[in-house]
């Protein structure tokens, strides 16, 4: 059962990787990276149960947090073109 799940997760990772490689728009790539991170979290969780060492679950949680931060940073860059987010800056860019 865990084996079937991990194979399915690996296949999904492959699909997300394909989208990140070919993705025509920026948002495709961001979504693909986000999804890849989620799949990594799931894979680690499944591995934790597969190998019986449930302390790996903490790492899965940390990955989820890091993935979130990275995606937020990427989206902020794409929408505002910089990280110095003042209202004035944004108006100037647009």
């Amino acid at each position: 059962m865990f084996i079937a799940v991990s194979v399915a997760i690996l296949i999904t990772m492959g699909l997300a990787l394909a989208r990140a490689l070919t993705g025509p728009t920026t948002y495709d790539r961001i979504a693909a990276v986000n999804m890849f991170g989620t799949k990594t979290v799931l894979l680690i969780a499944v591995l934790a149960f597969l190998s019986g060492s449930t302390d790996l679950l903490d790492i899965a949680l940390v990955y989820a947090l890091i993935n979130f931060i990275g995606v937020v940073a990427a989206l902020k860059l794409v929408t505002q073109k910089n990280f110095h987010s003042s209202e004035e800056n944004r108006r100037e860019v647009e």
């Binding site: 990787l17 990140a20 490689l21 993705g23 920026t26 790539r29 961001i30 693909a32 990276v33 890849f36 991170g37 990594t40 894979l43 680690i44 591995l47 790996l56 790492i59 990955y63 993935n67 990275g70 990427a74 794409v78």
Partner: peptide
């Protein structure tokens, strides 16, 4: 930009390998 995104995927993959 796409390369930076792929860097993210790369290090997630290697981190997964370290866990394995």
């Amino acid at each position: 930009f796409a390369i930076v995104m792929l860097y993210g995927i790369f290090s997630l993959l290697s981190a997964g390998l370290f866990v394995v």
